[in-house]
Amino acid sequence: MKPSTTSGFIAVNMENPVLEFKDFDQLVEQYRTRVLRFLFASVRDMDVAETLTQDCFLNAYKGRKSFRGECSVNTWLMRIAVNLVRNRARSRRFQFWKNTQRLDGEDIYEWPDRRISPEELAAVNEQVEAIWEATKILSEKQRTVFLLRFLEDLDIAEIAQAMSLSENAVNVHLFRAVRGVRRRLGRSE
């Protein structure tokens, strides 16, 4: 496969076809917001999301020599982030008494958004809240596929790479996720 050469912080070692990161700090700066956004939407706790973002870049730094440019840097980082979310979900299954603590604790509607009028804001909030709530009831894989597709704009092939699934499996999860969200939206309308 053709290596990704769009990022300025990646150099190709011609003798050994391994990509080398020239400036990892630049990579962190460029992708931090994106990774944090996905992680926050997945775990719904900003403190946890920030910790996982640090873990994500730390894992990326440790595994930077294994990155061969078979996918984009964004997809590679998303794969690490997806694994972190998955590992966290697994560990939380054994801590069932903690499950109810912070999942609903972070209210996105507390954040000010001064660009639109209060009426518009209310309407937007209602719709966004419905989808936000709908994603909670999805399974972990369905939610991840949904967020990668509709929040991060990844295409099916990229999602498949990020989640180590086949494209057919991603399509099935996406289909079920959209159906779940639509049913929830239909109920709220």
Binding site: T33, L36, R37, F40, A41, M46, I108, W111, P112, D113, V124, Q127, V128, A130, I131, W132, F150, L151, D153, L185
Partner: peptide, 16 residues
């Protein structure tokens, strides 16, 4: 609605 969700969540998380 999905587009609104994307734009709003992105903007709010970035503000945060």
């Amino acid at each position: 609605s999905l587009s609104l969700f994307q734009g709003t969540i992105r903007r709010r998380i970035e503000n945060r």
